[in-house]
Design a protein around this nucleic acid. Structure first.
Length: 476
RNA sequence: GGCCCGGUCGCCUAGUGGUCUAGGGCGUCUCCCUUUCAAGGAGAAGGUCACGGGUUCGAAUCCCGUCCGGGCUACCA
């Protein structure tokens, strides 16, 4: 059997990190089964459309390296892939169910429904449709439907049960008595999610449904629709939710959730993919650093966790650092490019890579680390002087540094090291005290890349003038 | 409220009846390395496997109950 899976976002907002985890699992499943991945846009809720949604899906997934085979822009054998362009299809199928006697027209107003619900709540009854319109005889209903606003509802049997063998959760069963006569087609002629998803998954020959656990509760509705059409329901996997720190479904109020935000923050896509794959899945070994290709090879749907997993930025950041360190130097330089001012000399930037790659977890962190090479620095006197040293002593040390460095033939880091070590020895200072004074003088801050390399990168002229400036500052 | 799904260190997780005195990673702490910060190395703390009953010679693993959390309960997806 040909594997065909899909991801079916509703375009109500920008691409979300939780969606990506589910999309990723679909992608991995498709890849490892030599199957196809389909993007289908479920825009049946006209009120919530967001024009930014589609571009952000394309941008975000492209950035992450997750590709698919059929979709609204790429087309495919089952086009169109946007539900609002398939309305006739749903209407025809809804009509078929009405004709078969498996569905019926409902003319109840929003007001009546609200009232009904309120009454049921007051009586602490199950809140569900009372099947008022189910009693209208079909001929009359058809006549009224020609001129009155209406929806189409599914006739749910009074008794019996439906069940699935979920690929993640195993056997799950529902009593039909707990399920209401679901709306299939709305007054505006658009299908509800439930009708559209079943019709499309069947028509698009989707072989496996892999989606978030929030959909598990609607499975019985879908099974009933499959049954009414006489279609087999494909195997399903309801994967655990990505949760916020409070244990609820991850959402905007928990902080950054848009893929674009992580990109802007300087996370490597490799890190995001790696981290996300591990929320809800583990290989059963102690390996944990995986590229997308590694994941294709190793991920298995039967290893997917049942419980939801909390979003942990600390761990994501750690993966950020892991993947930055794994990047070849030239590649890291290339990735850094958009995060640095365009006027900074790229050959200088390239030279800093070896000393910054172990110090950053996000691409955005590089800028501050090497800024001293591209602009002036203004050291504060307080920072220049080590705890147990006086300003005067420090001034002397800096003066000596100036002397040594200007006497040096070449300013490579080895020579700088020897020079500064000699100063410390002569002065009887700890190396750290000498170096800290020089570091602050030359870079303006107490933390940064290794000093000797930093001075080499800076060059003699600028190093000396910055030392001179510091000396002046200390002189008061 | 109802239906459904979950529940292993703070977090992600390994574990599918004995090898578990419950393993790894993140985070935290200590030490080493060391010119700062990192990275790296070595360690430590941290879990009565939600709780209570069973079943069994033996249970994190099987069964039942309870509790807690979550999802759904729309003419939203």
């Amino acid at each position: 059997m040909t594997v065909r899976v899909r991801f079916a976002p509703s375009p109500t907002g920008e691409l979300h990190i939780g969606s990506v985890r589910t999309i990723l699992y679909n992608y991995l499943f498709a890849k490892q089964n030599a199957g196809a991945l389909v993007l289908r846009i479920e825009d049946t809720d006209q009120a919530r459309l967001d024009p930014r949604a589609l571009p952000s899906i394309y941008d975000g997934l492209h950035w992450l390296g997750i590709g698919w085979d059929e979709g609204p822009r790429e087309g495919g054998p089952y086009a169109p892939y946007v539900q609002s362009e398939r309305l006739a299809l749903y209407q025809r199928h809804a009509q078929q169910l009405v004709d078969q006697g498996d569905a019926y027209f409902c003319f109840c107003s929003k007001e009546r429904l609200d009232q009904l619900r309120a009454q049921q709540q007051a009586r602490k009854e199950l809140t569900r449709y009372d099947r008022f319109c189910r009693r209208i005889d079909p001929a009359t209903a058809a006549e009224r439907a020609a001129r009155e606003p209406h929806v189409v509802r599914l006739k749910v049997p009074d008794e019996g049960a439906v069940a699935i063998d979920d690929l993640v959760h195993g056997h799950v069963e529902w009593e039909l008595a707990t399920i209401e006569d679901q709306v299939l087609l709305k007054t505006d002629g658009f299908p509800t999610y439930h009708l559209a998803v079943v019709v499309d998954d069947h028509l698009m020959a989707v072989s496996h449904i892999i989606r978030g656990e929030e959909w598990l509760a609607s499975v019985p509705k879908h099974i009933l629709i499959y049954r009414a059409f006489g279609w087999p329901a494909p195997p399903m996997a309801h994967v655990p939710l990505v949760l916020g720190p409070d244990g609820k479904k991850l959402s905007k109020r928990h902080g950054a959730t848009r893929v674009a935000e992580f990109r802007e923050q300087g996370y490597l896509p490799e890190a995001l993919v790696n981290y996300l794959a591990l929320v809800g899945w583990a290989p059963g070994t102690e390996d944990e650093v995986f590229s997308l290709d590694d994941l294709v090879a190793r991920w298995r749907i039967d290893q997917v966790q049942r419980a939801g997993g909390k979003w942990d930025v600390e761990r994501l950041r750690w993966f950020g650092g892991v993947w930055i360190r794994r990047l070849p130097e030239d590649e890291l330089a290339r990735r850094l490019d958009p995060f640095l001012p365009p006027q900074w000399d790229r050959s200088v930037v390239r030279a800093t890579i070896p000393v910054i790659r172990e110090r950053i977890e996000l691409l955005t962190q590089a800028k501050d680390l090497i800024a001293f090479l591209f602009g002036d620095v203004a050291p504060e006197a307080a920072l220049l002087v080590a705890k147990k040293r006086t300003p005067e002593e420090t001034r002397t040390a800096i003066a000596r540094a100036m002397g040594s460095l200007s006497a040096l033939g070449s300013l490579d880091h080895g020579a700088v090291k020897d020079a500064l070590e000699k100063i410390a020895a002569d002065l009887g200072w700890k190396q750290g005290d000498v170096n800290m004074a020089v570091r602050v003088a030359v870079t303006g801050t107490k933390v940064g890349p290794p000093l000797y390399e930093s001075i080499e990168l800076l060059g003699r002229e600028r190093a000396l003038s910055r030392l001179a400036r510091a000396e002046e500052i200390l002189r008061g």
